[in-house]
Design a binder for these strands. Sequence first.
RNA 1: GGGCCUGUAGCUCAGUCAGGUAGAGCGUCGGGCUUUUAACCCGAUGGUCGCGGGUUCGAACCCCGUCGGGCCCGCCA
Length: 530
Amino acid sequence: MHWSDVVAQRLSERGSKHIVSTGITPSGEFHIGHLREILTGDMISKAARNAGLDVEFVFIVDSADPLRKVYSFLDDSYSQYIGHQLKRIPPPNEEGCPDMERFAEGVSYADHFLEPFKQALEQIDVRPRFIDNFDSYASGKFAETARIACNNADKIREIIERVSNRELAEDWFPWNPIDSNGSIDGIRITGWNDPIVSWIDSDGNEGTSDVTKGEGKLPWRIDWPAKWAWIGVTMEPFGKDHGAAGGSYDTGKEIVELFSQEAPIDLTYEWISLRGQGAMSSSSGNTIGPLEALSLVPPEILRYLIASTKPNKAIEFDTGMGLVNLADEFERTTARDFSIEMDKEGLSRRQMVAIEDAKRALELSFISPHEETSSVTFRHLAMLAQTKSRDEDVWNSIGMIGTIPQSMIDRLDRMRTWVQSRHFPEELRITIMEEPDSEAIALLDDDNMALLPKLIESLRSCDWEISSIQNSISSTAKELEMSPRHAYRALYLCIMGTERGPRLPTILTELDQDAILKLLNACLQAKQES
RNA sequence: GGGCCUGUAGCUCAGUCAGGUAGAGCGUCGGGCUUUUAACCCGAUGGUCGCGGGUUCGAACCCCGUCGGGCCCGCCA
């Protein structure tokens, strides 16, 4: 069974109405690692609906969280905002400095990073109900849970200390008020008189906060179960950082009982890293943003990456050949006829499971509305994008006539972007030799050598366009009773340094005739001399 | 100090939850397509399932141990 269906089954055992929740702190640029969180939730929701359950999918924007530190992409002037909630500080401008103008227009730090992520979500067909955590506090959504938490501070302290096996400070209290400067750091609680906490901040200023009005926030380990409670979350996937024993899920599981609620069903997923570069990290700049990824890869393939990988499997995102293989696997899977495969006799249980899983992974990958596309592979399109500058020629080449589906136009656009990007693998790049490549020349055999002089003559006199070039090559080969395939081999070795390659006449017409003849002669000479 | 994930073909991985003669894709090699879209089709190649014990008629799978890789918690994420 596909992993999403396994979770759906667990959900159905518990009830028919569910809220699947995900959440991310907008502390910096979103990256594809975050996509796993949201796609995992999205796919579970879809699988659960598929199982006949009533499911709502929500995405909590943790905009009430404070700025932890001055990240590398921020100007030092942000140090004044450390400890301030992300919804209440200005967005960075191009230079990483606080952009007070946009802030005045109502764009917060949190909004700044959330907006592009929302666009990416649209593209990959994820449409959650967004919940802004800061606004939720402000509008009193946490009023009840905050009061319960403060009234049960001792119990919560006991849970956290026992489950996470760590000691909390003497003056620890389950509420972080906002101090006179707007920070929730370095503040000490001096009293609790439901629903008011009194505090003294690091500057010695004293004040009070009403926990029912969001004048502050619950600490993370309580904030999370409080969200479960007021939203009614029944299922939440989360990264392995929260899943560790004694981690926030373990403590949350017990704390949520104080709010008279059951902990949601959990699913811990592994991180996504960049191939050869380690974990994705917003602060080190070692990231690929969802929008950048989407400028290269069709959305259904990003979905397929998540859908076809079990959550507990770490993913190494590879923007080079790995991407090609993934995309081609997607194409092949799309072309499969699962009903015929399932009807085959003598299938082992494992084979059936594999077929089922592939089918489900594919279904979860399609974005709606699902358009029929040509089954051109990624490799093939990569080649076409390099050899045909006009889109029209690409469509003709793969037999698409009439109205081209938007998804195909997008795919070609992305391919052209990818070809020009630093991510495009050398292996697929079409390179034309300028000088004879000695290694390739060494591979020319006697037949090739016998052919070359005649071929050069024939190419010298032919019109430099596709059919004459093609004709010239095949007729020369026939003259010598050689297979055209073998004749092409000689040309590939001389021109591209490889034994095989993409359709050559097309490429030749885009190159200078004299230069090619010169190259072929040089190769001939080099071989004869060796 | 505690915990999680992971180790299977040259590469990427499935198979481990419900033990029953090792799988897929890519790659490689060979053939076909009598002018090759790196296509497509057919075939072949390829693994003492990290290692050592145990349970079992039977273990990649369960149990114990061990080695290697990745990571998390131990800072009010």
